[in-house]
Every structure is written in structure tokens, then in C-alpha cells.
Nucleic acid binder design. Structure first.
Lengths: 195, 195
DNA sequence: AAATACACATGATAAATGTCAATCTATTTT
DNA sequence: AAAATAGATTGACATTTATCATGTGTATTT
């Protein structure tokens, strides 16, 4: 069973508004369930991100690959988050990112056109969007500040405090990449901070 | 003369909508002109950011100070940008940032309460807000990606390409701080990249 | 005009982080 | 169960960046 309830709860929580039965009907009509298997790509660099997906189950990484072939993880996404490259999705431009499933996933996906036509007019949804983009801006500013002013060790400690479930759920090489460190460096940081 | 025209143009450009004479009247009634002299603080760490200001003239830095007394610049703001700590302004929580004028400034400022009551209901304004937060998200993601995946030299080159006027307008020690580097390191990077 | 503060550069050295290679373990696949 | 793969750790060494001290020229302030 595809759990639309998670999506309803999410929208209602963030917006502080209630969804009517009609609203819910519109959601279930236009958001399509999709399964993505571990290691499968949701988006490839150079493609336009046609869909945005609400994650019902599973996790994914958003990353780039540099000239040396090294991955850099910009984002780790889990349940009750949105899976998309916002820039590509909204502007319909080719994406600079790859998005790949880290576990088997179940998402509810929708195209830009359908969001604009059917979903955005729902007040709870656009209210949710505003709150979401605020939260996003705040979180990204905090991460940016860490990035320019703290050492690897401090950034790691902050991540442990702010998102302890990330540490448990994802292997250390992914955490390292997310922090802008090599796996070797993170391994040594952890070793030293045990003292 | 306080240039409300710059604000009108900005809102209309970003939103793609036209402001009526009534709309403009609402803007001029609630946005209050304010002058800030060079080195004066617009916001101090620990205070709630009561106002958001539209920059008509001048420039400012948003920064933190670490335990060692070193400044870290999160944002450099110039004409036609908003001067505020969004987190503090929207959530009415004490700010982690300082905002200080780098030049004599002229801004149009307004409180959170007045925005919510009088300004947000103007369709062009809320449309502008959406576009602005999208642009912001995109720009911050790009900066974040640079930060985790590029060297100081690469980040500097990107800044030169993306915001050449910043390089001309601000001294190098501020640019260095914005890039997460010490002034000495940026000085050496520039020397080496002349080859 | 003198005094002060600021921006920038440079040398010497230290600290943080990256690179490459090897090894070990745990997990997944066959 | 065996084989293959992925993740984590460690050592040796290189590179990047920070730190501290100092000098110099230029604005700013007094």
C-alpha cells in the first residue's frame, strides 16, 4: 500500500492547515507512487529533473562527480523529505547533480506542470512550501557558516548533535563526503576525538 | 529623496507583476527610510532582528565572531538586496549573527508584523518572495557545493566569475573571509594564479 | 602635518587535510 | 559456503591552509 497518509500528515504539520477530503483526492490523483531500487538513479547529471518526489520510505544522496572522479555529496535525503533538484525542477534546466537511491525507496512523484496546475492552488500546500523554503534557507545558512568557520572535527560534532540518525543510518564515507572531508580524514578525526 | 522607485522596480521585476498606485501607497506608508553610517551595526548577535531592510544604497556584511575573535563573513549585501537575518526575523529568535554597514547606507525598513499584515497580502510581493527564496536556495546550494568540493583557488575564481563587482568593491580581507580563507592565504592564491 | 589604523604582502613554521597503498572486516551476492 | 564487494582503518608522505611576525604603502583621523 502506498502511504499517502505520510504526505497528508507532512503537509498539514508544516502548513498548520487541514486538508479537506477533496484536497486529499487531488493529491492521490496527481502524485504517482514509484519504487526506486537501491543504486538506481532518480536523476542524472545533464538531465532535466522532471519530477519531485515525496519520500515515503528509503534514502538517497544528491552528489556531483569532479574531474578526478570523486563524489561530493550535497544532500542526504530520507523519509518525509523531498527528492528533487529544485533548480532543475523549477527552471527546467539540465541538472548539475546526480540523485541515487541508497536503499530501496518508495516515493510519491509529480511533474512541475501538475504541481503548478493542481497542487499549488491548495492553500495548505502553498503554505507548506513557504515554511519549507524558510526552514531550508535557515538550515543551509547554518551549514554554510559551519563550512567557512569550523574545522572538520567541529563540523562532524555539529552533525552528530543536529542529525544523530544520519550517523547511525549512513556509512562513514558518505558522512565524510557530506562534510567535505575524505573518508580517511573522518576516520582519523573520530579516532582522535575519542580521547 | 528616498528612492522607493528602486523597491517598486525590484518587486515588479522579480514577481513579473505590476504594482497599482494603491499598492505603492502601502509600501511607502509602511517601509520607513533609515540611514546607517559606515561601521554602524544593523544587528548585534543575541538581539532579535526586528527589521528587514531593502538596500537603496550602500553595503553591509553579515558575520559571526569565533572564540579566537576571528570574523567569519556569511554574506555580503549590496543595493537591491535585503538586509536581515531571516531566521531571527521570521521566528523572532535571538540572532547568531552581526550585521554591520561597510559604507554609509540608505535602507527602507519594516517590521515583521507590518509585513504580515499589510505587505504580504499584495500579490506582487508574495510572488516576489517565492522567486526570491527559490533564487536564494539555488545560490546557496551552489556555494555549498563549492565549499565542500573545491579548493580555495577554485572558489575564488568562481567568485570572480559570478560576482566580479564584489571583487572590485570590497577589500580582499573581506573576500577572503567570505570564502572561508585567511587574508594571507587569499593573497598567496592570487599571487600564484597570476602565472 | 602627524599620528593612527588599515589593507596587503611575504617569510618561517605549524596544523589540517588529502593522496595513495595496504590490510582487515563486514556485508552482500552468487 | 565461497566469492566478491564495500566500508573502515592505518601508515607514509604531499599539499593546502592557518598562524604569527614583520614590513610597507595608503587612507583616515586627530
Amino acid at each position: 500500500m502506498h502511504n499517502y497518509q505520510a504526505l497528508f500528515d507532512y503537509v498539514q504539520n508544516l502548513s498548520g492547515k487541514t486538508l479537506s477530503a477533496d484536497d486529499k483526492q487531488i493529491f492521490t490523483t496527481h502524485f504517482k507512487p514509484k519504487r526506486i531500487r537501491k543504486r538506481q538513479y532518480f536523476l542524472q547529471e545533464g538531465d532535466v529533473c522532471k519530477y519531485t518526489g515525496f519520500i515515503v520510505k528509503g534514502a538517497a544522496k544528491t552528489f556531483t562527480v569532479d574531474e578526478k572522479g570523486h563524489e561530493h555529496i550535497l544532500k542526504l535525503s530520507v523519509e518525509n523529505w523531498w527528492l528533487t533538484d529544485f533548480e532543475s525542477f523549477y527552471k527546467l534546466t539540465p541538472s548539475r547533480f546526480n540523485i541515487e537511491a541508497l536503499e530501496d525507496m518508495e516515493i510519491l512523484q509529480i511533474t512541475h506542470g501538475l504541481v503548478e496546475e493542481f497542487i499549488k492552488p491548495i492553500p495548505a500546500f502553498s503554505a507548506m512550501q513557504n515554511v519549507l523554503s524558510q526552514n531550508n534557507t535557515i538550515a543551509t545558512h547554518k551549514r554554510m557558516q559551519s563550512s567557512i568557520s569550523q574545522t572538520g572535527e567541529e563540523r562532524f560534532q555539529e552533525l552528530v548533535n543536529d542529525y544523530p540518525h544520519f550517523i547511525k543510518r549512513f556509512p562513514q564515507n558518505l558522512i565524510a563526503s557530506y562534510l567535505g572531508l575524505t573518508p580517511e580524514t573522518l576516520s582519523r578525526i573520530r579516532k582522535n576525538s575519542l580521547k
